[in-house]
Computed example of a mutant assay.
Amino acid sequence: MSAAAGRHARHELDDVIHAPVRFSIVAALADVDEAEFAAVRDAVEVSDSVLSKQAARLEEAGYVKLRKGYVGKRPRTWLSLTRDGRDAYGRHLGALRAIAEGSGAADA
């Protein structure tokens, strides 16, 4: 969704991504194809339960895909950004940059 000309960039911030833990999760996944749950947990510095809850919210929004499998006999979960998640993250970063640069306009 693109902002109307002259509209302040804060309107382009994504409420799902904007939450600090969810933003950190998406940022951790932005440069990889997928990451193991434990690696994301450690990178974001949260507990298993917090990561699980926030990843479920991102999955519900269509931004993150969870893949379950096994390594040997041990269950594992991998997280990856979907195309929609990558697009939303890019728009969100663009809005943050516009705000930080003082332009305020999303189309700046």
Rank of each mutant, 00 (worst) to 15 (best):
S2H: 12
A3N: 07
A3Q: 06
A4V: 15
G6E: 08
G6P: 08
R7N: 13
H8Q: 09
A9W: 02
A9P: 11
R10E: 04
H11Y: 11
E12F: 05
L13D: 09
D14V: 10
D15R: 08
D15V: 08
D15F: 03
V16C: 03
H18I: 14
A19M: 00
A19G: 01
P20E: 15
P20F: 14
V21L: 12
V21S: 05
V21T: 13
R22V: 06
R22E: 12
F23M: 10
A28K: 13
L29S: 12
L29V: 11
A30E: 14
A30Y: 07
A30M: 06
D31I: 06
D33Y: 03
D33Q: 04
A35F: 02
A35R: 10
A35I: 01
E36S: 06
E36L: 07
A39T: 10
V40L: 12
V40F: 11
V40W: 11
R41F: 12
D42K: 12
D42T: 14
A43K: 13
V44Y: 09
V44W: 09
V44N: 07
E45T: 15
E45H: 14
V46E: 03
V46L: 01
S47Y: 10
S49K: 15
S49A: 15
S49D: 14
V50C: 11
V50K: 14
L51I: 01
K53L: 03
K53P: 00
Q54M: 10
Q54L: 06
A56E: 02
A56D: 04
R57G: 08
R57I: 13
L58P: 10
L58Q: 04
L58S: 07
E59V: 03
E59C: 01
E60Y: 15
E60D: 15
A61D: 02
A61N: 03
Y63F: 15
V64G: 10
K65G: 05
L66G: 10
K68S: 08
K68D: 07
K68W: 11
G69M: 07
G69S: 12
G69F: 11
Y70H: 14
Y70R: 15
Y70W: 11
V71I: 05
G72L: 03
G72E: 04
G72T: 02
T77C: 07
T77F: 02
T77S: 07
W78K: 00
W78H: 01
L79A: 09
S80V: 07
S80A: 14
D84P: 13
R86F: 03
R86K: 13
A88N: 13
G90K: 05
G90W: 02
R91C: 11
R91T: 14
L93F: 01
L93Y: 00
L93A: 00
G94M: 00
G94K: 00
G94A: 03
A95S: 08
L96G: 09
A98V: 03
A98E: 09
A100G: 04
A100E: 09
A100F: 01
E101I: 02
E101L: 08
G102S: 01
G102N: 01
G102C: 00
S103A: 04
G104W: 09
A105I: 00
A106S: 01
D107M: 06
A108W: 06
